[in-house]
Every structure is written in structure tokens, then in C-alpha cells.
């Protein structure tokens, strides 16, 4: 009973080995967010999404599919699907998404790029070479597949002459900043989260926020990477008032997202628990991770608004878009 662990992880590992991502996306799905932004190809400093934001709609769709098997005996079927997936990318059928679903997450990436530009940061983009960093494979202990992939990513970055990566989510930040240097000999690329970059060079506040919000710290940002103050500084500098739960900063409570693939029911219960803690402070919940955003949004009742921090930062630091 339950989602078969071996076949599910096997598929993710096979995908990473054969298709460079645990959940492979078509090339245009990865890069479409950058249309119209005129980001230069490559450069010494690049924005690196690691496909995390683009992948969230597919993760949601995949999770929905997998959840149907949580209470069933499906080992045989999953073994067959894994065998077929080695030949054809079945995960792309299982995790189909609509343009509207993808657009929600593209917009956050555009927000981030615009904010960096407004802060005067010069950066390029690797477009089709903006590869997944391998966080899920690493977390699930798929070590051979992860190590081979990390080596491949490192070589690709070297080919492009990249010296500094600006990352846009905690998981990619953690992989490239803390894990790659341990598993890839000679990996010395400087890795900085866009929140750290912006906090160091905050753009001028043009439309002060008049909102009371509660910030949900991502476990990976807060406890793995020590990124705790930058989101607070940026929100407060932009005019927001923060009301925080007891479980914040280094004591933050998980959003439940990491259990979503294999144990969706447990994941949902943890997300609901976290939402209760956050909404006691404010109905305006701010996240700084695409997976936290997805997980907490699923658990939030209608009167709780879960938004990414970039939604607020755009309001505070960028002029209103012309209609």
C-alpha cells in the first residue's frame, strides 16, 4: 500500500541521468519566462533558476497523479511505468500543465529579474543551459545519479565561463553553494541568492507597502543557508509591517512540501498546521521558495493569501506597470 517508493524514485533518478532533470521540461518551458526581458546570453554573472520555478506546475500535476495511488496496491503498474519511462519520457505526460498554470510561476521569475535590474545588477542568462541542479535526487539519496549530474552541470558552467550565479530559490542555492563544492572537485563558482543581492543593494522604494504580512521562512534558506535577514530587510525597507509566529528564523516550521511526492497526505497535514501558525499572525502569508508557495497555497483557506515575496517587492520597488 502507498505510492511505490522504489519505482517512483527510480523514475526520478532515471530522468536525471537520461534527461538532465528529475522532472524533465521542454526547452521552451524552461526559458519562456525570459521572453521580452532582453537578458544577454551568458556572461560571468548569470541568473540561474535551476528550473525550480518552472517545474512547480509539473510537480503539482505529478503530485495530483501520484496521490491517487496512496491508498492502492500499485507496485506492478509503477514498475512497468518505470521501465517504459526509460524509453519514452512518460513523466511529461503524467505531469502535463497548462500555459496559465506555468504563467503564474513565470511571473515570479520575471519579477526577480526586473528587481535585479532595478538594483543595477548586471547579469546574463544561460537560456537552454539553465539546467536543474538536482536537489530532489540529492535529498532522496540518489547519489550516483546526483553526483554524475552535478559534475555535468559544473562542466557546463565552466564551458560558459560563469564565475557567479544569482539563484532564485533556496534548493538550487543550497545545491550549488553548499553541496556541489563537496561533490565536484574544484567547483568554486560564487553563489548568491537574489534576496541577498537585493538586500545588499536595495532599490529605492517607490511605492511603500501598506501591508501587514507574516513571513514563512523556508527551512532550506533559514537552517541550511542562513538566509534569514535579507527577506525581512527587503520587506520592511519596502514599508511592510512584519508580524511573526514563534516558529520563525532558525526555528521555522516546515511547509510539508518535501513529503508531497511520496506521502501527500502527511504533506498536507503539515502544511495545514503551518498555515494555522501563520494565519494567527496575518492573513497575508509571504513565502520565499516556490515549493513552500505551492504547498502552503494548497493548504490555505480562502481568507488566507499566500504570495511570493517577489510579488511584494515588485510593488514596493518598481514603478507601476503602464496599462
Amino acid at each position: 500500500m502507498g505510492i511505490p517508493i522504489a519505482s517512483t524514485l527510480g523514475m526520478l533518478g532515471d530522468n536525471l541521468t537520461k534527461r538532465k532533470s528529475a522532472l524533465p521540461l521542454a526547452g521552451r518551458v524552461v526559458t519562456a519566462w525570459a521572453d521580452g526581458l532582453d537578458l544577454p546570453h551568458g556572461g560571468k554573472t548569470v541568473i540561474y533558476t535551476g528550473q525550480m520555478w518552472q517545474m512547480v506546475p509539473a510537480i503539482n500535476a505529478m503530485g495530483h497523479q501520484l496521490a491517487q495511488y496512496e491508498e492502492k496496491e500499485a507496485d506492478g503498474m509503477f514498475r512497468m511505468v518505470r521501465r517504459l519511462n526509460r524509453l519514452v519520457n512518460l513523466t511529461s505526460f503524467l505531469a502535463r500543465t497548462t500555459a496559465a498554470e506555468r504563467e503564474v510561476y513565470y511571473e515570479r521569475l520575471r519579477n526577480i529579474a526586473r528587481l535585479l535590474k532595478a538594483a543595477g545588477v548586471k547579469f546574463g542568462y544561460l537560456y537552454e543551459d539553465d539546467w536543474y541542479a538536482g536537489a530532489l535526487a540529492y535529498d532522496e539519496g540518489l547519489d550516483p545519479a546526483f553526483r554524475a549530474h552535478a559534475q555535468r552541470v559544473a562542466e557546463m558552467l565552466k564551458r560558459h565561463g560563469v564565475e557567479r550565479l544569482i539563484t532564485v530559490d533556496p534548493h538550487t542555492t543550497n545545491m550549488l553553494r553548499s553541496i556541489y563544492p563537496k561533490v565536484v572537485p574544484g567547483f568554486h563558482v560564487k553563489v548568491t541568492s537574489y534576496l541577498e543581492v537585493l538586500a545588499e543593494h536595495p532599490p529605492k522604494t517607490v511605492r511603500p507597502l501598506d501591508s501587514t504580512v507574516t513571513l514563512h521562512d523556508s527551512c532550506v534558506y533559514a537552517r541550511y543557508e542562513g538566509v534569514i535577514e535579507p527577506p525581512r530587510e527587503l520587506l520592511m525597507h519596502g514599508g511592510a509591517k512584519l508580524v511573526q509566529p514563534d516558529l520563525e528564523k532558525g526555528l521555522t516550521f516546515c511547509c510539508g512540501g518535501p513529503a508531497e511526492t511520496l506521502f501527500p497526505t502527511k504533506s498536507g497535514k503539515i502544511a495545514a498546521q503551518r498555515i494555522e501558525q501563520l494565519k494567527a499572525c496575518s492573513p497575508n502569508v509571504v513565502t520565499a521558495c516556490p515549493l513552500c508557495l505551492a504547498s502552503l497555497s494548497r493548504a490555505a483557506p480562502k481568507d488566507v493569501h499566500v504570495r511570493d515575496i517577489s510579488d511584494y517587492l515588485v510593488k514596493a520597488y518598481l514603478p507601476a506597470a503602464k496599462a
Partner: peptide, 17 residues
Amino acid sequence: STEPIYSCLLCKMCEAN
């Protein structure tokens, strides 16, 4: 203990304390 091992969120709440 396969289920508990793969259920772990790796959130490090335990580790931090």
C-alpha cells in the same frame, strides 16, 4: 523503517535543536 526514512522532511528542526 522504510516509510519513516523516506517521510523525513529533512527540515532540520531536530538538528537545529
